[in-house]
Design a protein around this nucleic acid. Structure first.
Lengths: 324, 324
DNA sequence: CTGAAAGCGCTTACAG
DNA sequence: CTGAAAGCGCTTACAG
């Protein structure tokens, strides 16, 4: 049988109120009494039951996190960043995934209604903004991790400098004397795609710009296509590292040398970026820091700090390796 | 203000007991009454507060998951498998990571003591078996996801067929006429390493066997080393896909063609396996199924089913691509 | 079949 | 500084 506050009170010869006070407010308790109670707590190994505290206080000391899927390449980094910050604050983290479609969303919503968490961190799964906004409207503190450059003025969020990242990629290529870049983007409906492109264009004009999915295959076929069409490009700006990997592969298959014939810059800095051949020069997104920053924002908010709607923007960073 | 069971009772003209009954046991309630209560529940959008239910029932309908880190290549797959099963059962999943060392473990232990979860899934972080065994001893249902082939007879677990996987790799190489394989393993202290090696040896004798970490670098340096020593190998069996990727790279750098000069087989089937050049033939570990299977085992256990100590073993599968 | 009451393990005014 | 009591929102014997 786990020990309860009553056990402690009895053993220390005080009331539950007093035990509760030394545990919480700490003040308004006689020093000697406090010491004695603490000794008993340690001796008995008493830990307040979270559920009971939550019921009495109307909170759960737990945050929820809602994400599209754990299998995306950089998702683990973000969630790890969140986990670190949440752990440091002594909170629990309830993780929800949207992979199962409506069923998943329903489950997540049900846990919200059951008040399973006090605040929410979310990387909005496509089509799930509705329920999230609804929760926010009902008073749930929410912080968005804006992976797609879709700023929602209604909600606090953390984002990164997609535009500056694109500009940095262009600057690097420009400095290397490249003037005819092939740009391979992700889906144009994403804000991050438009931002990266806009940033890139401030320094360099694409010889050709193709869009596709954020996949290796997109990179491969885009390069094959450009090669077949005889587009004379001297570099590639890939909107993520998977696309870059595909481009690298297609270039090698075509007998082009990287970076001598064609320089390649990616985006993200996935772990694989250091293992491509040649190692990939890429624009690093601070995914872990974004997770940790969002968590900290939310935790501060739960602690009473005002949640500003001004996004917390963490900088990208050009990581120079061998491909450009 | 969220609606409570009292609101429902009042609106339906019954007692809280009755509302609770239609919500739970369902039986022993007049059909007409039940219908009326349900209507009110729907109309008011009533959802029982998880914490209150948990306190009254002595459970939390939440499971904990404790893992070394989310940044390992296949970790997302496992956790996603768990998330799917847990979601289907209407449970919550509290995620804990050991990345922060003792501080992380302390946090995790504190949440256990605070009874934040009813059951535990764990991929044992190195050095953290102690606390987990302790929780189990204190009555917490635990299921291990045995990624390292370290069977713990004390605990229920799910594992995979490392030995058969090694044998399948060897069989594939043997069928391709290879007789002088270079084997590059992970740390020999891991049971999975020994099992994969033992399985491999049932069909083929290594020309040379080197061990290292489960990293790209290990694969690269091992191949470079074997090449420098003039070991005449015609194939590589890498104990994971990162090692295989490194081997592929070193072979290409040395001008060897894969699979013609040297065939390469990996282990894991990470997403990157289909994007190496050439695409990697590898032994697939059913990480997602292992996660889902472990969760189901635990959930069944929480539902009253006996948790057998006999491991649930899910099969590996040889995925043939282009490298062997 | 249904309700009143006690209880789950805490916190927090309210008195003193 | 400290305790008795009420209350958080449920469930579950216990009567009827």
């Amino acid at each position: 049988m786990p020990v309860t506050i009553s056990d402690v009170a009895r053993a220390a010869g005080v009331s539950k109120s007093t035990v509760s006070r030394v545990l919480n407010t700490g003040a308004e308790v006689d020093a000697a009494t406090a010491v004695r109670v603490r000794e008993v707590i340690d001796a008995l190994g008493y830990v307040p039951r979270l559920g009971a505290v939550g019921l009495a206080r109307g909170s759960s000391r737990t945050i929820g996190m809602f994400i599209p899927s754990l299998t995306w390449p950089w998702m683990g980094e973000v969630v790890q960043g969140v986990a670190d910050a949440v752990e440091a604050a002594g909170y629990g983290m309830l993780l929800f995934t949207a992979g199962g479609g409506p069923r998943s969303t329903a489950h997540f919503t049900a846990q919200f209604s059951a008040r399973a968490f006090d605040g929410l961190l979310v990387i909005v799964p496509e089509g799930s903004l509705g329920p999230v906004l609804d929760m926010h409207r009902r008073g749930l503190p929410v912080v968005l991790i804006d992976d797609h450059g879709h700023h929602r003025p209604e909600l606090p969020s953390v984002a990164t400098t997609n535009r500056a990242g694109g500009a940095a990629a262009a600057a690097r290529l420009h400095a290397a004397g490249r003037r005819r870049p092939l740009v391979v983007t992700g889906p144009p409906r994403f804000g991050c795609v438009r931002d990266r492109l806009a940033g890139f264009r401030t320094a360099l004009r694409p010889a050709l710009s193709l869009d596709g999915e954020f996949t290796e295959e997109t990179g491969r076929t885009a390069v094959e296509h450009a090669l077949a069409r005889g587009v004379g490009f001297d570099s590639v700006f890939a909107h993520n590292d998977l696309i870059a990997a595909g481009a690298l592969r297609a270039l090698r298959a075509a007998g082009r040398t990287v970076p001598d014939d064609v320089a390649v810059v990616g985006f993200d800095d996935l772990p694989m970026a250091r293992h491509t051949d040649p190692a990939l020069t890429t624009v690093r997104q601070p995914m872990r820091a974004m997770g940790a920053g969002a968590a900290q924002l939310l935790l501060d908010g739960l602690g009473g700090a005002p949640l500003t709607r001004e996004p917390l923007v963490l900088p990208t960073e050009l990581v120079v390796r061998d491909s450009a």
